[in-house]
């Protein structure tokens, strides 16, 4: 599915409307296709580039800069584990280990059942609730290693 859907186009257009030019919407446009497709494959990148009148090369330069623009496949649910200092002090290493164990997949990989991809992420801004992690839009914390598998069960 290379071409942009009408929903994607509408969302990108809405962003362009509040900016002085279409190019400035590049990041938002990439986020939009990611929202619709989980990740930005080469075709999607090409479609966005064409829509914004950028070259693929130019758009890739932007896409490859940001942590949360995924240029590789991710599972249905993305688990972001805070990797920053407060959570580290509070024992996030054990949580990360528990997560890898429960998923049976390393960070960055998609689980066999296509459900999850876990990624270490810089500070989630929940240092008062560390160790913290986010699954999709939900923030969880403090998370104990023992809680991890139960937590994952809530995301079929």
């Amino acid at each position: 599915m290379a071409a942009l859907s009408s929903a994607e186009r509408a969302e990108i257009d809405a962003e362009i409307a509040i900016l002085p030019d279409a190019r400035s919407a590049s990041i938002e446009a990439l986020k939009t296709v990611q929202r619709h497709r989980r990740w930005i494959d080469d075709d999607a990148l090409g479609a966005v580039a064409e829509y914004l009148d950028l070259s693929k090369h130019e758009l890739e330069a932007i896409a490859s800069f940001y942590n949360l623009l995924f240029r590789k496949p991710v599972g249905r649910h993305v688990v972001l584990v805070c990797d920053s200092v407060s959570c580290w002090i509070l024992g996030n290493e054990a949580v990360k280990q528990a997560l890898e164990d429960s998923l049976g997949a390393a960070f960055g990989e998609v689980t066999r059942d296509d459900r999850f991809t876990a990624l270490p992420m810089q500070c989630l801004g929940a240092c008062d609730r560390g160790p913290a992690l986010m699954i999709d839009e939900d923030l969880h914390g403090p998370v104990q290693p023992a809680d991890v598998s139960e937590l994952l069960r809530r995301y079929p």
Partner: peptide, 18 residues
């Protein structure tokens, strides 16, 4: 030109084409 770009970040900057 449009087909040579700085890509990536931190100590993984890449100068090349798509």
């Amino acid at each position: 030109g449009h087909d040579l770009q700085a890509m990536g970040t931190r100590d993984r900057i890449y100068f090349g084409r798509y």
